[in-house]
């Protein structure tokens, strides 16, 4: 418990987490507002209010990576390991704090985007939270943010440099996962199993509203069910996080 408090103090006594949180909220909710304002053809479905969660996810992952890479950058990781030499417990505590914070931001993004859409659109007939799938589109953002933050924390711990960690995460999520479809024949099949594509399927997949014209909005590839997708993404995130713990324990601080 004390270590959670320690990591909480560390996170909130620097500025970058605050900037990232504001940016994550602003980007996701702001772009949703634009979508809502432009949804004049037919009623806006719940799932459309979650399209932009990926902006927030990227920013939250940057925040999570920064939470550890700045410790390496400024040497506070050495002070941390000096104070708690088993290394695993402070890193796990950081994981818990960062994941919880990301979940809260995800909750705000999910509900904020949906709520703002509710205020903006004229036809709310498809925007009520009625089915389990509707709730998943809104609340799922929170779970994906939490898992994504652990993935980023793991990458940050492994790489130890802000620039390296952030570029790996963003280039992979934004470029590699999209460009992989350019590989002839197998590209599409590979993409279906890449982590951020799968995470997207969890939040946006199997929408049951009919408000959108066929094919509108981002495509949602994936083989797994939405909840299976979440399990898959979380497993990958946890795997990165656990490997990073083992590596941090073994190498010189």
């Amino acid at each position: 418990m004390t270590l959670l408090a320690v990591e909480r103090i560390k996170l909130f006594t620097t500025r970058s987490p605050w900037w990232c949180m504001v940016l994550a909220l602003g980007l996701s909710i702001g772009f949703t507002a634009i979508i809502a304002a432009n949804s004049t053809e037919g009623a806006m479905p719940v799932v459309a209010s979650a399209f932009t969660h990926q902006f927030g996810l990227m920013v939250i992952m940057v925040m999570a990576a920064l939470a550890i890479t700045t410790e390496y950058r400024f040497g506070t990781i050495k002070a941390t390991f000096q104070a708690v030499p088993d290394r695993i417990s402070p890193l796990v505590a950081k994981g818990v704090v960062v994941a919880l914070l990301s979940a809260v931001v995800g909750l705000l993004v999910g509900f904020g985007s949906w709520g703002l859409s509710w205020l903006i659109v004229s036809d709310r007939s498809q925007l009520a939270l009625e089915s389990a799938n509707d709730w998943r589109h809104v609340l799922g953002v929170s779970l994906v943010f939490a898992a994504g933050s652990l993935l980023a924390l793991g990458v940050g711990t492994l790489v130890r440099q802000t620039a390296g960690a952030v570029s790996i995460i963003l280039v992979f999520a934004l470029l590699v996962e999209n460009l992989v479809t350019l590989i002839p024949k197998i590209g599409d099949d590979i993409q279906k199993w890449l982590p951020f594509t799968v995470a997207n399927k969890f939040v946006l997949g199997e929408a049951d509203s009919s408000g959108l014209p066929e094919g509108a909005g981002p495509p949602v590839p994936g083989e797994l069910s939405p909840w299976g997708s979440l399990a898959y993404f979380t497993a990958i995130a946890l795997a990165f996080f656990v490997v990073s713990l083992v590596v941090a324990k073994r190498r010189d601080a």
Binding site: T2, L3, A5, V6, I9, K10, T13, T14, R15, T70, E71, F74, G75, T76, K78, A79, T80, Q82, A83, V84, P85, P90
Partner: peptide, 30 residues
Amino acid sequence: PLRTVGALLDAKWVHPNRSARAHLDWLAKS
């Protein structure tokens, strides 16, 4: 261990945007 061994290896091992007080706060708490 901070109760047994105190060390100053590098005075720069502090986050520059954190106040002196906050830096010592988290160390003490740990």
